[in-house]
Design a protein around this nucleic acid. Structure first.
Lengths: 98, 98
DNA sequence: TTGACGGTTAGACAAGTATCTAACTATCAA
DNA sequence: TTGATAGTTAGATACTTGTCTAACCGTCAA
């Protein structure tokens, strides 16, 4: 039995944003790390694996967020990143139609 | 019965090239057009649908080719573009693992 | 309250790139 | 052979973007 995810409809603009977000290897790695760690990850855990400044990481997080690929939950001093699997699946489905 | 495609192993560099190739909307449209027209398409057929000069189109074709996404067959004056479905499938499989 | 810590914002800079024009090569028909 | 046609290559230009530093904002413990 397959998990029933909420169907997501991506706009042309969002599809474009996602493609651009994935084009940077660093961003892809970040997304991969978030995805493979069960789905959520703290911001500083990501930083430990990426040799970039906090400012640069913050920039990449925003790109991934505006693309819709991740959600960012801010609590107190900390931020937690979560992969939006419905969006990810919708993107895969879109590519599959080629 | 599913068509049995040759298994393709993509290198990290090639994965990166593919992601970058897909990041440009124009290139994505070209790839889409090739893919949806049964798999092969003449170069000038693509040009009729894209408001760019021949030089620009040639540039995009080369990007798609070096990414491994398409093959270009040159015969006489003409060029024919063909989607490499094995590479495409391998890329989808890679993304699916996130 | 004050300092340390996690993260963001603004601005600068270097590298990459999508596009064009112009000049070129190669093929084919008249 | 000559002209037309399909596509390529080289170089220029304008725009995008990944990265940094520096300054900033909020939170929390001492």
């Amino acid at each position: 039995m397959v998990a029933k995810a909420k169907q997501v409809r991506l706009t042309a603009r969002q599809l474009e944003r996602i493609a651009r977000a994935l084009a940077d290897p660093r961003r892809y790695q970040i997304l991969e790390q978030i995805g493979k760690c069960g789905g959520t990850l703290s911001c500083s855990a990501v930083r430990e694996c990426q040799p970039v400044t906090a400012a640069t990481l913050s920039h990449h997080m925003k790109e991934l967020e505006t693309a819709g690929l991740i959600r960012i939950a801010r609590e107190g001093k900390f931020a937690t990143l979560e992969l939006d699997r419905a969006v990810w699946q919708a993107y895969l489905d879109h590519l599959k139609r080629i």
